[in-house]
């Protein structure tokens, strides 16, 4: 048996899963479900939750505990954690996904149009860092948190590829 803590929109679900003879026995906040799962592809499955049919695609997104579930036409962000780890995290006063990226990498290829910061600059959360053109659109990349810029690896007019290091914060 395995216990998870799943958080969606600040609602918490304590979920126990037990695998017995091709069926997953699931208890959610005390409520029971019998579930069947058929793998359909790399990240796609057909799940029957008490015979309710869901074709789903679940993939990781952003930080470690974050998943995005695509089901019934909706994309639903959720956090899934080992229940005991979640308790330790809470005891340590850490919020989900609080780990802040020190190195900002390009999520997609594009062209740098403007760079607003220099090494040594202090920025506040939400402050524009630079502007990238991708898919005919200008995208303003903003600071995720208050930080000090350690290094800037880009300048205006430069093309970037997915995964390129763009900025580092101290």
């Amino acid at each position: 048996m395995k216990r998870y803590l799943v958080t969606i929109d600040a609602s918490e679900y304590t979920i126990d899963i037990d695998y017995r003879s091709e069926t997953y026995h699931v208890t959610v906040n005390g409520k029971e479900y019998n579930c069947e799962v058929s793998k359909l592809g790399e990240s796609r499955s057909l799940m029957l939750l008490n015979n309710l049919s869901y074709e789903v695609d679940v993939h990781s997104s952003g930080y470690e505990s974050r998943r995005v579930a695509f089901m019934r036409g909706m994309e639903i962000p959720a956090d899934v954690e080992d229940y005991n780890l979640a308790q330790m995290r809470k005891a340590a006063g850490v919020k989900i996904g609080e780990k802040i990226e020190k190195v900002l990498k390009a999520l997609m290829p594009g062209l740098v149009l403007k760079v607003h910061v220099n090494p040594g600059d202090s920025v506040v959360k939400g402050q524009p860092l630079f502007v990238v053109e991708a898919m005919k659109m200008e995208n303003v990349i903003k600071a995720q948190s208050d930080a000090v810029i350690k290094a800037v690896h880009i300048k205006a007019g430069v093309s970037i590829e997915k995964g390129d290091k763009l900025l580092e914060i101290a």
Binding site: K2, Y4, V6, I8, D9, S11, Y13, I15, I17, Y19, Y24, V26, V28, K31, Y33, C35, V37, K39, S45, M47, L49, L52, Y54, V56, V58, R67, A69, M71, R72, M74, E75, I76, P77, A78, V80
Partner: peptide, 25 residues
């Protein structure tokens, strides 16, 4: 833009937990 009713939210929670359980197993 994600507006979830209680049932769908609970089902989504099961879906991600099951997915994680299957991968770990």
């Amino acid at each position: 833009y994600t507006v979830l009713d209680t049932d769908t939210r609970e089902h989504a929670a099961i879906v991600v937990a099951l997915d994680t359980f299957m991968k770990e197993r």
